[in-house]
């Protein structure tokens, strides 16, 4: 299935439709997510990237249905999740699982791995009796690469490394045969030397079991690797500013913010990193979520910003004509019909 197909309405497993989420904080209300629409196709690997405060975690939590949007809809197989009740809602709950960032906090320290993994099996009637549960847990451990499984059944989280714990957390998400896994910074707390193997594990679940995976990360290099056959969405101050095929987005970013971000990333290659062309921003200051600028929220920093346009109208996420399908929320890029990276060069 191509990237374009997966975005066709109706094929999406799960979809955010113009969702916003506001939080009350001392000093006012902040809009953490503002009008984000995103459709996840079956078996898709998609990454949401952005800096802290961009709303990527809030978006992930709304996708996983653990946070109610202030406005907008969450659709599962085309139906509004928050109108479902009883059995229908629990079907959705099983279908979408969340893997948290911190494997040191997300596992109960007083439970063995077997207890952690068998509880949801019993709870959702996926296992009958101890022997069946043991066999299923063994199988799950095998799937997430904790082998031989019998070595892990009786262990407690503190006996495992960070990477092993994160594998247990992924196994726990798999206990209920989900169709979508939302992984929030799932590799950022494990050692660099083993991150790729965890990403490969998630990608394997996608290719072998058809699970869609949404990875939320601040690391664009990780996003590029993970979503190399899929899409990356870039968020800035609560809005999706660019959504497109990952290679196109990384090599020729369409939004000036993505362009600035990619130009700023230090790379593990001295020749490349020391000769990178920077994108000079007007200011380094990020506006407060409590006092967002009007129009495009990036305009006070944007080298392409045009007075009277960018500071007045909120840009919509629109398709940019190009070889690979992508969408960008930038007045200037859309008008010039060219990605920002080319306009800045």
């Amino acid at each position: 299935m191509s990237v374009a197909d997966s975005t066709v309405a109706g094929r999406a497993v799960i979809e955010l439709d113009h969702v916003s989420r506001a939080f009350k904080v001392p000093g006012g209300t902040i809009t953490a997510v503002d009008g984000v629409s995103l459709a996840i196709g079956a078996g898709e690997a998609l990454c949401i990237v952005g800096e802290s405060g961009c709303g990527k975690t809030t978006t992930g939590r709304m996708l996983a249905g653990i946070l109610h949007p202030t406005s907008g809809r969450l659709l599962y197989e085309g139906e509004d999740v928050w109108r479902k009740k009883g059995n229908e809602l629990s079907t959705f709950r099983r279908a979408v699982q969340l893997v948290h960032q911190d494997p040191y906090a997300s596992l109960n320290p007083t439970r063995t791995i077997f207890q952690t993994l068998s509880a949801p099996l019993y709870r959702h009637k996926k296992a009958k009796g101890n022997r069946d549960a043991t066999n299923r847990v063994r199988h799950l451990l095998d799937v997430v690469g904790l082998t031989p499984p019998d070595d892990f059944l009786g262990k407690y989280p503190h006996q495992l490394s960070g990477g092993q714990r994160q594998r247990v957390a992924i196994a726990r998400a798999l206990t209920v045969d989900p169709r979508v896994i939302v992984a929030d910074e799932a590799v950022s707390m494990v050692d660099v030397s083993i991150r790729i193997s965890l990403l490969n594990l998630l990608l394997g679940l996608r290719s072998e079991m058809g699970v869609s995976i949404v990875l939320i990360t601040h690391d664009l290099a990780v996003a590029r690797y993970f979503a190399r056959e899929g899409r990356i969405g870039v968020m800035y101050l609560g809005r999706m500013v660019e959504l497109g095929h990952s290679e196109a987005l990384v090599s020729d970013p369409a939004h000036p913010y993505s362009a600035a971000l990619i130009a700023a990333i230090p790379e593990a290659d001295p020749r490349i990193t020391r000769s990178k062309e920077r994108v000079a921003l007007k200011t380094a200051e990020v506006p407060s979520l409590l006092a967002l600028p009007p129009g495009c929220t990036f305009h006070p920093r944007c080298p392409l910003a045009e007075p009277g346009l960018c500071d007045v109208q909120i840009p919509e996420l629109l398709p940019l004509p190009a070889d690979t399908p992508r969408e960008v929320a930038c007045h200037v890029a859309i008008r010039e019909r060219r990605p920002a990276a080319e306009l800045l060069a």
Partner: peptide, 19 residues
Amino acid sequence: GLLRAVPRVSGAMGSVASI
């Protein structure tokens, strides 16, 4: 091993792998 464990944003991806 360490060098291959880190993906990059620019240039070819190459054979990235964990240790």
